[in-house]
Amino acid sequence: MECKEFGYARVSSKGQHEDRQLEALKEYGINGRDIIVDKESGKDINRLGYLSLKNNMLRSGDTLVVKELDRLSRSKADIKNELEYFKQKSIRVKILDIPTTMADYPKGQEWVLEMVNNILIEVLGSIAEEERIKIIRRQREGIEAAHKKGIEFGRPNIKKPENWDEVMCKVQSGEMKIVDAMKKLGIKKTSFYKLKKMYLVKVAD
């Protein structure tokens, strides 16, 4: 069976673009149909595209190409584990931004390549993990600062309509149906029942 080269690209969210990575992989020579893309965090390896590539597509003798080391993961432990897994499966990993991983050493001197790569991957893996820790810390500090300013996250609270009590009295007395009450209050069904629950108004459906 002919050995193949697959490309892998990852961005952390759907709002980000993988164009830069795809361009680099295609420029290297990877066919577009052999490039797998994930739009998920690099905090771990539990990504649908990556796991499918790893478990179902890559075979012994194949090559996995990524633009940057942290596209595999931002966890140093995961990076080491994945690279060791590929090594055991005789799957070569090439990282476009680490030139030594692209080189072909003479037979018998592969240990030189492995030694250099291990040093680089150790350093870059630590940087990737530290960057993830910084991102998490910045997010937490941002949320804490926003809370101090009175900014709340999530969906805004539903404001109680000024005519709520008047309308609900008519609903309770049977003078008005719930569907008409919602129109009178100017709110949708979901908001109506949330307000009903908040103000503990007993309404017969």
Rank of each mutant, 00 (worst) to 15 (best):
M1G: 08
E2M: 14
C3F: 15
K4D: 00
K4T: 01
E5R: 09
V11I: 12
Q16L: 10
H17A: 15
E18M: 14
E18L: 12
L25S: 00
L25E: 01
K26I: 12
Y28A: 04
G29T: 05
R33S: 14
D34R: 10
D34V: 07
D34Y: 06
D34T: 06
I36P: 03
V37H: 00
V37Q: 00
D38C: 01
S41V: 07
S41D: 10
G42D: 09
K43D: 01
D44R: 04
I45N: 06
L48W: 12
G49E: 05
L51Y: 03
N56E: 15
L58R: 01
S60D: 09
V66P: 03
D70Y: 11
L72S: 08
S73L: 00
S73M: 06
R74K: 10
D78V: 08
D78A: 06
K87W: 01
K89C: 12
S90I: 06
I91A: 08
V93N: 08
K94N: 08
K94S: 05
I95P: 05
I95D: 06
L96H: 08
I98N: 08
P99S: 07
M102Q: 14
M102H: 12
Y105T: 08
P106A: 02
P106N: 05
P106C: 01
W111L: 11
W111Y: 12
W111Q: 09
V116T: 06
V116G: 00
N118V: 08
L120N: 05
I121F: 01
V123M: 07
L124A: 09
A128P: 07
E130K: 15
R132G: 00
I133N: 11
I135K: 01
I135C: 03
I135V: 11
I143C: 04
A145V: 05
I151A: 02
F153L: 10
G154S: 04
G154V: 07
R155F: 04
R155M: 07
N157L: 15
N157S: 15
K159Y: 03
K159V: 14
K160H: 00
D165V: 07
V167P: 02
C169R: 15
Q172D: 10
S173G: 08
G174A: 03
M176G: 04
V179H: 13
D180L: 10
M182I: 06
K184N: 13
L185T: 04
K189M: 06
T190V: 15
S191K: 11
S191L: 03
F192I: 04
F192Y: 11
F192N: 00
A204F: 11
A204S: 14
D205N: 11
